[in-house]
């Protein structure tokens, strides 16, 4: 089994070290707070009809921090994300074992209310997926689904969510036109707004910038950065520079015989500057993967 170097505690041990959170010019990631786990993953193993995709992953994801998951394609990062909001339920023959605890509740328990869980854990995909409805309906329909009926409240929430993602000024005059008429970057921000409107605790992001042009990508990246502190963000990215810029923590996944494993997890700075595992070192320096 791959040795997992998990070094969550060094964050705290370094709290007294005055330089620990000076992240340097590239690492603009916000300073980390107390490492207080919002999600605890223990021995998570995931397989698709017998082919295991993720093997025995354990890690804590800290509240209010941005955690980046890096690694080459097909190493189980997306599978990992999907097991945090039980999107794995949608995949036939997908078996999940182990424990994923959010606020001390095992979310894979049989009596879990999956819809309530997904309201608390939002998810953004690589390809923006606004519904073929108006901008307004895109945000308000999920709210109605979760019991918000009051019109005035719906309108307030619509405006707040769009303001949160910096889209309000761009679309306030055409809230009733189709969301599909927006540009790719706008669509992605709308999707983030749609998720934020439900006031989730956790946001899962699966390569949210990789389908966007560089300018839109920068806007979305700034937006993600602005979410830290308020939300617990787990982001899968292939863009190492982006991970360095925005993440507080980073986990490095690597696949052996198509089975993904968590090789190393730690402070973002540590993963990039002093990785403990040679595979991590090779990957972040661009030598592997």
């Amino acid at each position: 089994m791959t040795q997992i170097k998990q070094t969550p505690t060094h964050c705290c041990s370094e709290v007294n070290n005055s330089n620990a959170y000076t992240l340097g010019p590239i690492e603009a990631g916000p300073p980390c707070c107390e490492p207080d786990p919002a999600i605890r993953v223990q021995n998570l193993t995931l397989s698709y009809g017998g082919q295991s995709a993720l093997d025995n992953v354990s890690l804590d994801i800290y509240r209010g921090c941005i955690t980046a998951l890096i690694g080459p394609s097909g190493c189980g990062k997306t599978s990992f994300l999907s097991s945090i909001n039980r999107l794995t339920d949608l995949i036939p023959n997908c078996t999940v074992t182990g424990k994923v605890e959010i606020e001390n509740t095992d979310i894979h328990a049989a009596d879990m209310d999956v819809q309530a869980l997904r309201r608390r854990v939002g998810m953004i995909f690589q390809k923006p997926n606004p519904f073929p409805l108006s901008i307004r309906r895109n945000i308000q329909m999920p709210l109605r689904e979760h019991g918000v009926k009051d019109r005035a409240l719906l309108e307030t929430k619509l405006q707040t969510a769009l303001q949160d993602v910096g889209l309000w000024d761009e679309v306030k005059d055409r809230l009733d036109s189709s969301a599909l008429s927006l540009s790719g970057g706008q669509q992605q921000r709308l999707c983030i707004a749609r998720a934020l409107a439900l006031q989730p605790e956790i946001l899962l992001m699966d390569e949210p910038c990789s389908a966007l042009d560089p300018l839109s990508s920068a806007v979305v990246e700034d937006l993600i950065l602005s979410l830290s502190g308020r939300y617990t963000v787990v982001i899968v990215t292939h863009n190492l520079a982006q991970a360095r810029r925005i993440a507080n923590y980073a986990g490095f996944f690597w696949a052996k015989e198509r089975t993904g494993k968590l090789v190393e997890f730690g402070r973002c700075q540590q993963i990039f500057e002093s990785p403990a595992h040679e595979l991590t070192a090779a990957y972040v320096s661009g030598a592997r993967g």
């Binding site: 909001n85 999107l87 949608l90 999956v114 819809q115 309530a116 869980l117 997904r118 309201r119 939002g122 998810m123 995909f125 390809k127 997926n129 606004p130 519904f131 073929p132 409805l133 329909m141 999920p142 689904e145 979760h146 999707c191 749609r194 998720a195 439900l198």
Partner: peptide, 25 residues
């Protein structure tokens, strides 16, 4: 497109709502 099914699911929408508000239209 499958993205809409996934989009509805991750927003905690029931399949009934996803069907009536998104997929069938």
């Amino acid at each position: 497109p499958d993205e809409w099914r996934k989009g509805a699911a991750v927003l905690g929408m029931s399949r009934l709502s996803a069907l009536f508000y998104i997929l069938l239209p």
